[in-house]
């Protein structure tokens, strides 16, 4: 059964607040100082008409992807932490948009592949850490099903066949 995310169909005001928050994280410099906060409005405007929700979704996804790209020290943490989407997360609703934006970076796919390789091709990862890949693997499965035009029930407990043997 699919648990409803408390953030499903996020209100525009909340979406704007989250977008600003992510932009600030992306533009944080030493001492927690946010650089040139006045640029936020300009950058969102560059993405589209700020009266439309779709502009803010695009902005959120773009800034979040940029933040993850900027701070990816260990590729595996992308999979087990940042892209480990579950319905309780506020950004669950926009997970496809965020991952799609991340894949627009030339190294995006390489980083994801590196993360999966690090987790599944060594003995360094615990059972729990491998479990923490499920959010991302589920997302892939959903996308694949979408592309095939098949609707599938995706619940938090759904395991991906072969996940445990992939190591």
């Amino acid at each position: 059964m699919v648990r409803a995310s408390p953030y499903t169909r996020m209100k525009l005001q909340e979406l704007k607040r989250r977008t600003r928050q992510v932009w600030e994280a992306l533009n944080t410099w030493k001492g927690g100082v946010v650089l040139q906060p006045e640029n936020f409005d300009k950058e969102v405007k560059g993405i589209g008409d700020r009266r439309y929700k779709k502009t803010w979704i695009k902005a959120l996804a773009r800034f979040k992807a940029a933040q993850l790209h900027r701070s990816c020290l260990d590729a595996w943490t992308l999979i087990t932490i940042s892209f480990n989407y579950h319905p309780d997360r506020w950004d669950y609703e926009y997970r496809y948009e965020i991952v799609d934006e991340f894949l627009l970076y030339p190294e995006g796919l390489e980083l994801i592949k590196a993360g999966l390789e690090q987790i599944f091709s060594t003995d360094d990862f615990s059972h729990q850490e491998r479990e923490d890949t499920h959010g991302f693997l589920r997302l892939l499965e959903e996308r694949e099903a979408q592309h095939r035009g098949i609707s599938i029930a995706v619940g938090p407990q759904r395991a991906i066949a072969g996940t445990h043997t992939a190591a």
Binding site: A25, T28, W29, K30, Q67, H69, R70, S71, C72, L73
Partner: peptide
């Protein structure tokens, strides 16, 4: 998590991870 990594990197190295 990525914010923490970013902050520690900026303080330690004066640049971001990338």
């Amino acid at each position: 998590y990525p914010e923490v990594i970013n902050e520690e990197t900026l303080e330690l190295f004066d640049c971001d991870v990338k």
